[in-house]
Design a binder for these strands. Structure first.
Lengths: 149, 149
DNA sequence: TCTGAGTATATGAGAGTTCAACTAAAATGG
DNA sequence: CCATTTTAGTTGAACTCTCATATACTCAGA
């Protein structure tokens, strides 16, 4: 027995889809245009930049950058071609490998960051009141805690 | 002068990214698994199903399904191959064309809908309190009104 | 130690998305 | 009217993502 969405729920759902997609597209376009990389790559670089030695195991990196392992593997291959990331084997576990941010990669990230932050503000933070921002924070935390494995 | 995100803003932003991505992935996987179509295709079928004659101009359809024209054009080509949608030229404007949902397309949508709605509830609505849902509705409406062209 | 099960990552194919042309037809405006 | 500019829609190439599979290694137990 399906419990369909009533009119209010419909509206909420469609606004949710539209809003999140608009934010994502704005972000992706900004980064693609001004930094030549998709948002997923940017998140990988950020995660690496925050790690000790700017280096991390692939699986750890996938978790932090909210990427599947396969996606990460392909992405790191591209980033390696650009010279932004380098892979090195893991001594303690010979199946594993580390990805490390190069200086060029860090420079690319540093160059991209200001435009990215501006876009984050423009497309989300500046749109909401401080109160709404607090509400959104709790809502997203709840969703994340429920859905994250 | 870049105004960076403070710690609270960082957390909010990252939770927002994670939460919206988790919801989107859950939806996409459910539809792909149980109905053999991505969420974007589903939205196209929904938009068509609600139109008079289950038929709409391509550009109108792109707007309603939150798709770029190019994406829609490719998508409709695939949907046409499956026999779910049919294109016909527009008489009043010979540049234009209509996309119409076929009976098979409608049947595919009807078959997919219950599982989809269940996933929407599971991954978003059931996670939030009624109060949070109301807050989210307003937040998304605000974002949408600001960012939508 | 051997064997089977599980883990870490890579890879290839297939599918969807984007971006930049490109075609064709309307609208605008001297 | 003719020239110009818009608008509607399509297309191909490059790129990313997903899914299934493959590979190599680790680990637990008999």
């Amino acid at each position: 027995m399906t419990r369909w969405l009533d009119d209010d729920e419909q509206r909420t759902w469609r606004d949710f889809m539209a809003a999140t997609q608009l934010v994502n597209e704005a972000l992706d376009r900004q980064l693609q245009r001004e930094a030549g990389m998709p948002h997923t790559y940017y998140m990988i670089l950020v995660a690496l930049s925050e790690a000790p030695e700017r280096s991390m195991r692939m699986s750890e990196l996938a978790a932090r950058a909210q990427s599947s392992q396969s996606r990460l593997s392909h992405a790191v291959a591209r980033l390696e071609e650009r010279g932004w990331v380098r892979r090195r084997p893991c001594d303690s576990d010979r199946r594993g490998s580390f990805a490390a941010l190069t200086d060029e990669g860090f420079a690319a990230l540093a160059a991209a960051a200001p435009g990215h932050v501006a876009e984050v503000r423009r497309s989300l933070f500046d749109v909401l009141t401080p109160e709404q921002l607090g509400q959104l924070a709790e809502i997203c935390a709840a969703v994340r805690n429920t859905l994250e494995p």
